[in-house]
């Protein structure tokens, strides 16, 4: 298939890519931009390991064409850490055992980032339902809830409410 030139805005930088129109966003990120943080875990949009934010909304990058994302802001797990340091949620996932093998973790990072962006203080019920878009085979999810709680507390400490 003939390649086309597209512009992708990923983690605040614009990249010019020559790709087949049929190329999936996940493959463009992993193969063309070497942003291998987003993972492929399934063939049928069922695992969430490939989750990225497109204009702030969690999307399955394995189910989107890269070319369809032109002009949109894509955030991958590589764009989560702040000023070269771990974001609170990343630190908390490490401290509380939210990541074991870590293969699902990039997807969860994006899902949780979005959850906390729209709901700064989710109930456990809300956390569970938000996380159900992603599969993890190691943790049984429990320690993720603790991590999310800890991250919220850390954020609140860092930004005292007025």
């Amino acid at each position: 298939m003939k390649k086309e030139l597209i512009e992708l805005n990923v983690n605040g930088r614009t990249h010019e890519l020559a790709i087949e129109p049929s190329k999936l966003l996940l493959d463009a990120l992993r193969q063309d931009l070497q942003l291998t943080g987003s993972k492929r875990g399934c063939d049928d949009s069922s695992c969430g390991a490939c989750t990225v934010l497109v204009d702030g909304i969690p999307m399955l990058s394995c189910t989107m064409l890269a070319a369809s994302c032109e002009g949109q802001e894509i955030t991958t797990v590589e764009g989560v850490s702040e000023h070269g340091s771990l974001a609170a949620i990343q630190k908390a996932y490490g401290d509380w055992g939210g990541a074991q093998c870590g293969y699902c973790t990039p997807g969860f990072m994006m899902t949780v980032k979005h959850l906390l962006a729209v709901n700064a203080n989710p109930t456990e019920e809300e956390v569970r339902s938000a996380l159900s878009s992603n599969l993890c085979r190691c943790t049984g999810y429990s320690q993720m809830y603790q991590a999310i709680k800890a991250a919220i507390e850390a954020e609140q400490k860092a930004v005292p409410s007025t």
């Binding site: 992993r30 942003l35 291998t36 943080g37 987003s38 993972k39 492929r40 991958t76 797990v77 590589e78 989560v80 850490s81 771990l86 949620i89 990343q90 630190k91 996932y93 490490g94 401290d95 990541a99 093998c101 870590g102 293969y103 973790t105 990039p106 990072m109």
Partner: peptide, 14 residues
């Protein structure tokens, strides 16, 4: 842990 939460850690397919 940091490699896993930042996406910097490499798995074989990466």
């Amino acid at each position: 842990a940091a490699g896993k939460t930042t996406g910097a850690g490499k798995y074989t397919d990466d």
